[in-house]
C-alpha cells in the first residue's frame, strides 16, 4: 500500500517534524497462533502525519491507551519502517521495554511520543518507533531502535526514557534485541 510509505503534504503554516510518522493499530486474538502472516494482517494503518498540527489532528480523535481493550497495541513508526522485526530497519535492532502498572499508560505514552516527535532522544537516525501494548495485568511501552549493538545509543535512549516518563523508582526496564525476541 502506497500510503504506508509516503509522507503526507504539509501546509507552510504548519510546524514540520524532523520525520513523518505512521500510526498503526493491532489487536491480537488470544489463543490463536500468531504467525508472521497473521501479525502483518492484523496491522491496520490508522493515519500518517508530518507536522505537529497533523499529529494533534489525529491524536485528538484517538482512543486513549488506557481505554483500549486488552491485547491491543498502537505502533507509532517513522514512515517507511513497518512495525515488524522483518523490516530492514529493524533487523539488527532491539527495543527498550518498560512495564507499567495499570493507570499510568496514557500519560507515559503521550510523554514518550512527544519526546520522539520532538527529537528529544538525540540519537541521530537510530529511533525506529514506539509501541504501547495493553495487557491484562500491566501495560507495556517499548522504544525500538536500529542498532542493538550500539551501547551508547541504547544507554542514551534508556536515560531519556527515565527522564521523560518520570518512572517510579523500581520500575523495570529491559532491553531486548529483536533476534532474542524471535527465538522466544
Amino acid at each position: 500500500d502506497k500510503d504506508e510509505v509516503v509522507a503526507p503534504e504539509i501546509n507552510p503554516n504548519e510546524h514540520k517534524l524532523q520525520y513523518a510518522y505512521a500510526l498503526w493499530y493491532s489487536r491480537r486474538n488470544p489463543g490463536k497462533q500468531n504467525s508472521i502472516q497473521s501479525y502483518d494482517r492484523n496491522l491496520k494503518l490508522v493515519g500518517r502525519f508530518a507536522s505537529v498540527e497533523q499529529f494533534w489532528g489525529l491524536y485528538s480523535h484517538l482512543t486513549r491507551p488506557s481505554e483500549l481493550t486488552t491485547h491491543t497495541d498502537f505502533h507509532l513508526f517513522k514512515i517507511g519502517i513497518k512495525p515488524m522485526w522483518e523490516d530492514e530497519a529493524n533487523q539488527r535492532g532491539g527495543k527498550w521495554i518498560v512495564r507499567l502498572r495499570k493507570g499510568l499508560v496514557s500519560r507515559c505514552w503521550e510523554n514518550l511520543i512527544l519526546a520522539m516527535l520532538g527529537e528529544q532522544f538525540m540519537v541521530g537516525e537510530e529511533i525506529c518507533g514506539a509501541v504501547v501494548s495493553i495487557r491484562f495485568q500491566e501495560d507495556i511501552i517499548c522504544v525500538w531502535n536500529k542498532t542493538a549493538s550500539d551501547l551508547g545509543t541504547t544507554n542514551r535512549i534508556r536515560d531519556t526514557l527515565r527522564r521523560i516518563l518520570h518512572l517510579p523508582s523500581g520500575a523495570s526496564m529491559e532491553y531486548k534485541t529483536h533476534n532474542e525476541s524471535l527465538k522466544n
Binding site: 510546524h15 489532528g57 519526546a115
Partner: peptide, 21 residues
C-alpha cells in the same frame, strides 16, 4: 541540515491551534 527539535511544552501549546483540529 539542522535537526528539528521541539520541547514538550511547545508541542502542547500547538494542541489547540485551529489547524490542529
Amino acid at each position: 541540515g539542522t535537526r528539528i527539535v521541539y520541547e514538550r511544552a511547545f508541542l502542547m501549546n500547538l494542541r489547540n491551534s485551529p489547524i490542529s483540529q
